[in-house]
Simulated assay, not measured.
Amino acid sequence: MKITARELNRATLHRQLLLERASLDVAEGVRRVVALQAQQPGSPYVALWNRLAGFDPAGLDAAFTDRTVVKATLMRITLHAVHAEDYPVFREALQPTLYASKLGSRTGLPPAEVLALVPGLLDFTAVPRGTAELRAWLEERVGAEARDGAWWGLKGYAPLHHHPTGGPWSFSDRPSYVAAGSGPLPEGPEGAPEALRRLVVRYLEGFGPASVADLAQFGMLRRGPVRQALRALDGEVERLEGPAGEELFDLVGAERPDGATPAPARLLGMWDSVLLAYADRSRVVPPELRRTVIRVNGDVLPTLLVDGRVAGVWRPADGGIEATAFAELPEPVWDELAEEARSLCALLAGRDPELYGRRYGHWWAKLPTGRVRLLPG
């Protein structure tokens, strides 16, 4: 079966709840979309505001506090917010990636020595611990010279959750860590085939259809194990032919809306998952805009989504949202964006009107010429 570019786009938006805001609670919303990028504390809130009808940020505050939704280093070795029930499986499936990237280099110690610290570290973080406490704990065990390298590896490798520390978006720039408390202890560089199969299914539920390269990109996984996982799911997964003739995979019976399905305008936050979960990002990001919105240092600017594809960028400004479109947009689209901007400003007003502060402002001087409007808040 062949799938067109618009059908692929609409399938993605449907599964990411971007065709229509869903009437779900926060935990179920996070489960449905699988994983939310969470490098910047405000991003999961903007992501859910885009996806859930009547989103109340207090619901996400509560979910982080009671650990129904957890924030941890996972896919692509970056911070993600996921449903607590998904975390152990995702962490186990990503074991080879995390081991290689966090224990295989830069710690200054043999991997076995760092690995031997994990059980004690998890005992110590049975209650939340700040960075200073954790460095002091490590210094007692490995010495001052090796402390920082060991902590660099362990904070990304060990099964730790980020503990809420307050601030407008639950987490501040002074992280606190607590042991995940579920799932097997990581023991070495080997993967867990069953966990990887479950990760593949969850990925396709939230981001499919997708290629082997897309799946590998999502988790920074090797393609060989991904192919093995797909073969093991024979009967649960079907093959499709993508717009350029590429081989795609999807769950049997998964819903894929018609390409003519309308896609409403959205104001996606920084690092929105729908922009990053694929090797081929052209399903949502036009190739000519990829380097504009995904910067060389990994920053991903807040974007305008128009007819299901990136059409520009936005940032908070005095009096509302400053939107920059890189092509002419019809007035009804600007009206849609203005309505979204009013809703977003209401979300930000009680929290942090600047949202990302000075994180990305310098990029605006490097943007191509666009059509700029202030959308009143």
Score class of each variant (00 low, 15 high):
residue 2 K to R: 15
residue 9 N to I: 10
residue 9 N to M: 13
residue 9 N to R: 15
residue 13 L to Y: 11
residue 20 E to L: 04
residue 21 R to L: 04
residue 22 A to H: 04
residue 22 A to P: 02
residue 25 D to P: 06
residue 25 D to L: 01
residue 28 E to L: 05
residue 32 R to V: 03
residue 38 A to K: 03
residue 48 L to D: 02
residue 48 L to G: 03
residue 48 L to R: 03
residue 51 R to T: 03
residue 54 G to Y: 05
residue 67 R to D: 05
residue 67 R to Q: 12
residue 69 V to D: 01
residue 69 V to C: 08
residue 73 T to I: 06
residue 73 T to F: 07
residue 80 H to Y: 12
residue 81 A to D: 05
residue 82 V to G: 06
residue 82 V to F: 07
residue 82 V to T: 06
residue 84 A to G: 10
residue 86 D to Y: 04
residue 87 Y to K: 10
residue 87 Y to M: 14
residue 98 L to T: 02
residue 100 A to N: 07
residue 101 S to M: 13
residue 101 S to H: 13
residue 104 G to I: 02
residue 107 T to W: 09
residue 108 G to C: 10
residue 123 D to F: 10
residue 126 A to G: 14
residue 126 A to E: 14
residue 136 A to Y: 07
residue 137 W to R: 08
residue 140 E to C: 09
residue 141 R to A: 09
residue 143 G to S: 12
residue 149 G to R: 08
residue 151 W to P: 01
residue 154 L to A: 04
residue 154 L to R: 01
residue 161 H to S: 10
residue 162 H to Y: 10
residue 172 S to P: 09
residue 176 S to D: 14
residue 179 A to E: 12
residue 180 A to V: 08
residue 185 L to F: 01
residue 190 E to P: 02
residue 193 P to C: 00
residue 200 V to F: 06
residue 201 V to L: 11
residue 206 G to L: 03
residue 206 G to F: 04
residue 223 R to A: 14
residue 241 E to W: 12
residue 246 E to W: 13
residue 248 L to F: 01
residue 260 A to R: 15
residue 268 L to H: 03
residue 269 G to H: 04
residue 272 D to S: 10
residue 279 A to W: 10
residue 280 D to Y: 02
residue 281 R to C: 01
residue 285 V to A: 05
residue 286 P to C: 00
residue 287 P to I: 07
residue 288 E to G: 11
residue 294 I to H: 15
residue 295 R to V: 02
residue 297 N to V: 00
residue 297 N to A: 00
residue 303 T to E: 09
residue 305 L to C: 06
residue 309 R to M: 07
residue 311 A to F: 03
residue 322 E to A: 14
residue 326 F to I: 12
residue 328 E to F: 12
residue 328 E to D: 13
residue 331 E to P: 05
residue 332 P to A: 06
residue 345 C to T: 15
residue 348 L to P: 02
residue 354 E to Y: 09
residue 356 Y to G: 02
residue 358 R to E: 15
residue 365 A to Y: 13
residue 369 T to P: 02
residue 374 L to V: 06
